[in-house]
């Protein structure tokens, strides 16, 4: 089994702040982390390796700093890591990104054929959930998104059986390798890095690929040029002009505050009473 796991280094969105005056992102001091959704995919790939044997290669496209994310993946137990980095990729949207990553995976395949590709369900910065499906289409791989459990891998018949989260239930799907899987959050818990893997990660000779090494045949398909979507405007959300009406009573006792609030609420929204009565026990 050879599994490629695509990961992305992202700013920890929970810690991003917008400058109140200039409305620009304040990146300073915002830590870069491995996209949390990618870790579920990485862990699932490592579990398959533990059970069925084989290799796990992690792949990332991004600036040189993304090396940190790849070393982190090695410390968890990945065997190889490749960073695809080139200024020509800057400004790539999801279509261009999936083209670049698919090209890189084809290059990886020249060494060892790839049986499965894992990608995060989505990233926390872009949130699009499109790069995984995009890679699968470009490589003509079967696509299994939102997988909550890998039930069985049949190496002899080269089939994979998974449980997939669908609207209103779980689909049990069987497909053939090669296939691309995105993993649902909460499916597993990332293992701890072992001491020996941490040493290995620190010393690991990371492979860095520019656009040529990544096998990009058509530079018009990457970067801004290869991106159909164009950002025309970035702006801060307009604050609501109306602030909350603060409930105030003379006593400011909880009971009085609650009663005053309810009186105002049901005067303004008389129908709410009916809605509550409908649901209430």
């Amino acid at each position: 089994m050879h599994i490629v796991v695509c990961i992305k280094q992202v700013p920890d969105s929970a810690q991003i702040r917008v400058h109140p005056v200039t409305n620009t992102i304040m990146r300073q001091g915002v830590p870069a982390i491995v996209n949390p959704y990618d870790l579920y995919s990485l862990e699932e790939a490592l579990r398959i390796k533990d059970q069925y044997g084989g290799r796990v290669t992690v792949l990332s496209m991004g600036p040189p700093q993304a090396e940190t994310a790849l070393r982190k993946a090695i410390s968890f137990g990945a065997d190889d890591a490749i960073l695809v980095t080139d200024r020509a990729f800057a400004g790539s949207d999801t279509l261009a990104t999936s083209y670049a990553l698919a090209s890189a995976i084809r290059q990886i395949e020249k060494d060892i054929p790839v049986d499965m590709v894992f990608a995060g369900k989505q990233t926390i910065d872009g949130d699009t959930a499109q790069v995984g499906p995009g890679i699968a289409k470009r490589l003509d791989m079967q696509l299994l998104t939102y997988v909550s459990k890998v039930r069985e891998i049949d190496l002899e018949n080269r089939t994979v059986t998974v449980e997939r989260r669908a609207e209103g239930g779980v689909q049990v799907l069987r497909t053939s390798m090669p296939c691309l899987v995105t993993v649902l959050e909460g499916t597993n818990e990332m293992r701890f890095a072992t001491m020996s893997n941490m040493f290995r990660a620190a010393r690991y000779p990371l492979k860095t690929w520019d656009k040529e090494k990544a096998g990009i045949e058509d530079v018009a398909k990457i970067g801004l040029k290869g991106s159909p979507t164009i950002v025309s405007k970035v702006f801060a959300p307009t604050p609501k002009s109306v602030k909350a009406e603060i409930i105030d009573t003379e006593s400011n006792q909880p009971k009085d505050l609650a009663v005053t609030l309810l009186a105002k609420l049901f005067t303004k929204k008389p129908n709410l009473q009916r809605d509550i009565a409908k649901n209430a026990p």
Binding site: S13, D127, A236, P237
Partner: peptide, 16 residues
């Protein structure tokens, strides 16, 4: 929304 909702961006697809 982008960057976890801190900013909004407007996106167009012109030539496709």
């Amino acid at each position: 929304p982008t960057f976890g909702g801190s900013l909004l961006c407007t996106i167009v697809t012109l030539n496709y």
